[in-house]
């Protein structure tokens, strides 16, 4: 019986993940709008994706994020993250909550990033993930991620992120390993206004995914974003507003079958 329950849990676990790639963390609404190119992400939520991106900001950054998947009840994600730069690097802390009382998952992330060279940063993240289904025993896992970001020229940014490289198995599970993720991406930014992003991501057990995004900052306070992701192929879009020390972003993911998933994120940069 217990085994059956676990099988049920497992299928739910994976069906949940069918909505997105497994371990698709909290991208923030800007990254979503740009086709989920997470390897070159910067800002507070880069902790959950490419921790090297935490080095980008020179002041304390706090961000919140919310998503409703496919306009369904009970499949919401909320997250909060903060990055604190210190003289020997930057620390990040974040919490993610997904689901409702029947099924939910939490992820606690802690990270450290350092600029090894002026144009080369590395970051490490440590994550504790737990899943809970009503009446079932929860499962949990510790895992880690590593990321690199570098800027070889003024216009080009390159990033690599690797998550769960050793395919950590969940506690009390049947020994099944959680997938590892590697993503390589680049951004081309010929001016302050325009940015083009591309990325390939490989998750064990899934096909290679191509992603692309374009951002255009039409006026200093407003940025328009559109993105593409395949497997299955779909578009994302969003806008960003820059108001003082706040960045607001809204985005939508247009899944061809399952429909829209609106997202919002707000980021605050301290002085």
């Amino acid at each position: 019986m217990k085994k059956l329950r676990w099988a049920g849990f497992l299928s739910l676990f994976f069906s949940t993940y069918l909505f997105a790639q497994p371990w698709t963390n909290v991208p923030d609404a800007e990254t979503t709008a740009l086709g989920y190119c997470t390897s070159i992400q910067t800002g507070a939520f880069s902790l959950m994706n490419n921790p090297a991106g935490m080095q980008h900001d020179s002041t304390l950054t706090v961000a919140i994020f919310g998503e409703n998947k496919f306009l369904l009840e009970g499949v919401n994600t909320f997250a909060v993250a903060a990055t604190l730069p210190v003289h020997f690097g930057a620390f990040g802390l974040g919490v993610t909550q997904f689901g409702n009382t029947d099924y939910n998952q939490q992820r606690f992330s802690f990270g450290y990033a350092k600029k090894l060279l002026p144009n080369f940063s590395v970051g490490l993240s440590f994550d504790y993930v737990q899943f809970q289904i009503t009446e079932a025993e929860g499962v949990n896992a510790f895992t880690a991620g590593v990321g690199l970001q570098y800027q070889p020229t003024d216009e080009i940014y390159v990033g690599m992120r690797l998550f769960n490289p050793f395919k950590i198995a969940f506690s009390d599970f049947t020994g099944d390993q959680a997938p590892a993720v590697i993503a390589l991406g680049a951004a081309y930014s010929p001016s302050e206004k325009a940015k083009l992003l591309i990325e390939v991501e490989k998750t064990t057990d899934f096909d290679l995914t191509f992603k692309a995004g374009i951002a255009y900052r039409i006026i200093p306070a407003l940025s328009l974003r559109v993105g593409y992701t395949d497997n299955p192929s779909h578009f994302t879009a969003g806008v960003g507003f820059y108001v003082g020390r706040f960045d607001f972003a809204i985005a939508n993911d247009f899944h061809p079958v399952l429909g829209s998933s609106p997202q919002i994120s707000i980021q605050y940069h301290a002085k």
Binding site: L116, L117, N119, F120, Y150, V158, M160, L184
Partner: peptide
């Protein structure tokens, strides 16, 4: 493939 040497000690290479 992207190959980059951020300085004389480090080299990075990423490929798909």
């Amino acid at each position: 493939q992207v190959r980059y040497k951020p300085d004389k000690n480090w080299s990075l290479r990423a490929r798909a």
